[in-house]
Design a protein around this nucleic acid. Structure first.
Lengths: 184, 184
DNA sequence: CTGTAATTTCAGTAATTACTGAAATTACAG
DNA sequence: CTGTAATTTCAGTAATTACTGAAATTACAG
C-alpha cells in the first residue's frame, strides 16, 4: 500500500473510475474498488483516503456502497480497532457477484413490472400492441437471465477450461442445433 | 400515438426511464426509447414532446443520442418535411445492438487499457501483483465477450428454439465438459 | 467502565448533468 | 430560388449527484 501510487497502477485505477461513472457507480467508488483489487494486502480506509486523495468521509460512504454490493471482505486485525478491506482473490468471483447484484437490482424489478402490466386486459389496440412488445421483452430477458445463471454456476476452473477451448462455443451451439434438428 | 398515454403504457415508460438512469442513459432518453418500442407506428419528435411532456429540444438531443447508439430507424413520408422514428420490430435485434454498442464503448477500451499496462515491465512486487490481477481481468473479460459474441450470431428464431429448450443449457455445458474430459 | 481511536452521519457546498427557450440552421414544397 | 416548417445548437438555469469537514456515534484496548 504505497503512499503514492505508481503510474501504472494509477492509470488502471483512473480507467476503472471512468468506467464506473458510465455505469451507475460513481467515479470514486470505482477507483476505490480498482485499488482494492490491485492490492495484495487488505487496505484500511486511511490507506484509500491517501492513495486516492479523497476525503475520509467519502471513503466511508464508498465502502458502505461496496459492502452493500457484497464486493468487499472486511477483516479485523487482533488488537486493533481499525478495519481492513479486500476484494475477492478470484476475478471470476467478483464478476459473478456483479452479475448477481445487477440482476437483483435491475432485472428482477423489470421482470416484475412487466409481469404486472401483462396481467391487465388491454383497453384498446395500442395497449394490445404494447403488451405484445412487453411480452417479447419479458421472454427475452428471462431467457438471457437463465442463461447467465447457468454460466454463473461454473467455478473458475471450469471457466478456465472453456477459455482454453477458445471460441468453439459456436461449435457446441451448432451441435445443440443438430440435437434439436427436428424443431427446425 | 395518443396525446395522453394510457396508465399501462405510462407505467412501462416510467419504469424504463428509471432503469435507464441507473445506467449511463438519462431518464428522458430511456423514456423516449420505451415510447418508441411500445408504439406500433413511427413517431415524430412532436409526438414524443407531447407524450412525455418534455421540451422539443430535449427530444432532439435524445433522438441524436439514440441515433448514435443505432437504436432507432428514421423514416420520411413522401411530401412531408417531418421525420419519423421507430425502434426495430424485433426485441432481440434491439438487445443485440445494445450489447454490441456497450462492447464498443466500454469493453473494448478497457481491454485495450489493460493490454497497454500489461506490456510494461513491473517495477516492483506491488506492480507485479497488480499486473497479475490485470491479466486475469483481461482474460476473463475477453472470454465473456467472446461468449456473448457467439450468442449474438444467433437470429431470433434460433434463440426461440433455445428458449423452448429451457435451462438444459446446463446439460449442454455438462456434455461439453465430458467432451473435454481429458483436460480435467 | 473510561478514554480514545476509529467509523459514520449529515448539512452545506461544489461539480456535474439534464433540460429549456430562443436563435440559428437546414431541408424541402412550391 | 423563396418561404416556411421543421430540426439543431447552445447559453443559461434547474436539478441532481458527489464530496467535504465537523459533529456524533461506535467499538474496543486498557
Amino acid at each position: 500500500m504505497p503512499t503514492t501510487l505508481t503510474p501504472m497502477i494509477q492509470s488502471c485505477i483512473l480507467h476503472f473510475g471512468e468506467m464506473g461513472s458510465r455505469w451507475g457507480i460513481n467515479r470514486t467508488v470505482g477507483q476505490m474498488y480498482a485499488l482494492l483489487v490491485l492490492s495484495k494486502e487488505p487496505l484500511c480506509a486511511d490507506d484509500m483516503t491517501e492513495a486516492l486523495g479523497i476525503s475520509r468521509s467519502n471513503v466511508s460512504m464508498g465502502l458502505k456502497e461496496l459492502m452493500s454490493w457484497d464486493l468487499v471482505k472486511l477483516q479485523h486485525r487482533p488488537g486493533e480497532r481499525k478495519e481492513f478491506y479486500s476484494a475477492p482473490g478470484d476475478v471470476w468471483d467478483i464478476a459473478k457477484t456483479l452479475i448477481e447484484q445487477r440482476r437483483k437490482r435491475e432485472i428482477d424489478p423489470t421482470l416484475s413490472t412487466l409481469r404486472n402490466l401483462l396481467i391487465e386486459t388491454p383497453a384498446n389496440p395500442d395497449e394490445e400492441y404494447a403488451q405484445q412488445r412487453m411480452r417479447e421483452m419479458h421472454e427475452l430477458i428471462e431467457m438471457l437471465t437463465l442463461w447467465t445463471q447457468e454460466i454463473q454456476r461454473l467455478d473458475s476452473a471450469q471457466l478456465g477450461t472453456l477459455l482454453k477451448l477458445g471460441n468453439s462455443i459456436g461449435k457446441v451451439l451448432d451441435m445443440k442445433d443438430r440435437l434439436l434438428g427436428s424443431k427446425k
